[in-house]
């Protein structure tokens, strides 16, 4: 996140490099609020390794009991789609109605579908 906005493909090992002045790398935090819920992005923080990031995440993003589970990921390990991708990358889904439950007519009164 700290370099050019266009960069998308930094992976794994490069993630936790040390910047000058002992700057700690950035980690993204995802929290799960209750059983069965998806993990959602809560924000980011600085830490030197995964255990440290997890501890900090609990203190910064979960001290009010808002989370039962935490994930931490080095920011640089995240690969994101580019805004410019949105056409070819995402559009084909929009006109394929058969992927949506509403496409299918079912007899009335049949439950559990």
């Amino acid at each position: 996140m700290s370099d050019a906005l266009e960069t998308t493909h930094l992976v794994g090992e490069q993630a936790a490099t040390i910047a000058p002045d002992g700057q700690w790398p950035v980690w993204e935090v995802f929290t799960q609020s209750s059983q069965g819920a998806p993990h959602e992005h809560a924000g980011s923080l600085h830490a030197t390794d995964a255990e440290h990031a997890l501890q900090n995440a609990r203190d910064v993003y979960a001290r009010r009991g808002e989370a039962i589970s935490l994930w931490v990921v080095p920011s640089a390990a995240i690969t994101a789609s580019s805004p410019g991708d949105s056409g070819p990358f995402f559009d084909p889904g929009a006109d394929k109605a058969y992927r949506h439950p509403q496409f299918y007519k079912v007899p009335r009164g049949v439950r559990g579908l």
Binding site: W24, L45, H46, A47, Q55, N56, D59, V60, R63
Partner: peptide
């Protein structure tokens, strides 16, 4: 020494 630790010690 760092914000994250300010929060941790306060906890």
């Amino acid at each position: 020494p760092i914000l994250e630790e300010d929060i941790a010690l306060a906890n």
